[in-house]
């Protein structure tokens, strides 16, 4: 029962946060709503025994990326933007597109409802925790992608600095 309660609580937090993120006028409020949504997702990771991702989600997303967002929001003057019209002119077309997408998602899920019931989830291997298992795989099979990812981050850091620094004329 606790599973159900926790799932719906986190799911509600996630969806509500997401909806507020895309609808609120003030960008700071949007960011805070997004934090709530991400926290909900972190909770869902925990429910699925992905402890490592839970920690990464909290530290990296909420602690890192969102702080970055807040910084930028403070840095960039958004007061004018908050008073402007919030939605795009072609919103009808977009909504139509979205409804179609939603419908197709629903149909997919409905049709696959049976097929997704493969068998009951495989039993959890006892003794090995999530972090150990993850690191075993990450640093053995996925070592090269891991290093490439570090390179990507380096490039992103340099790029971010280059983009944001003042031009010296």
């Amino acid at each position: 029962m606790t599973d159900i309660a926790f799932f719906y609580a986190f799911a509600a937090l996630t969806v509500l946060g997401a909806i507020l993120t895309v609808t609120l006028r003030n960008a700071i409020h949007c960011a805070i709503a997004l934090i709530a949504s991400l926290a909900g997702i972190a909770g869902l990771y925990l429910l699925q025994k992905a402890e490592f991702l839970f920690v990464v989600q909290i530290m990296l997303y909420i602690g890192g990326v969102m702080v970055l967002f807040l910084f930028v929001i403070m840095l960039v003057n958004l007061d004018g933007a908050a008073k402007e019209r919030q939605y795009h002119r072609h919103w009808l077309a977009a909504v139509a597109c979205l409804i179609g997408t939603g419908a197709i998602f629903a149909a997919f899920l409905h049709r696959g409802a049976g097929s997704l019931k493969l068998e009951s989830p495989l039993p959890v291997v006892p003794g090995a925790g999530n972090v150990e298992t993850l690191s075993m795989v990450l640093f053995r099979e996925y070592l090269v992608p891991f290093e490439v990812a570090s390179l990507l981050l380096l490039v992103a850091v340099v790029g971010g600095v280059m983009m944001a620094k003042k031009r010296i004329d």
């Binding site: 996630t14 969806v15 997401a18 909806i19 993120t21 895309v22 960008a27 949007c30 960011a31 949504s37 997702i41 967002f69 930028v72 929001i73 960039v76 958004l78 933007a81 402007e84 019209r85 919030q86 939605y87 795009h88 919103w91 977009a94 909504v95 597109c97 979205l98 997408t101 939603g102 998602f105 629903a106 899920l109």
Partner: peptide, 18 residues
């Protein structure tokens, strides 16, 4: 799927880049 849709709505409709 719901999250994805909500995100797409944000990308397609909002004018604020942030």
């Amino acid at each position: 799927a719901m999250l994805l849709l909500i995100g797409t709505v944000g990308v397609l409709l909002r004018r604020n880049v942030v």
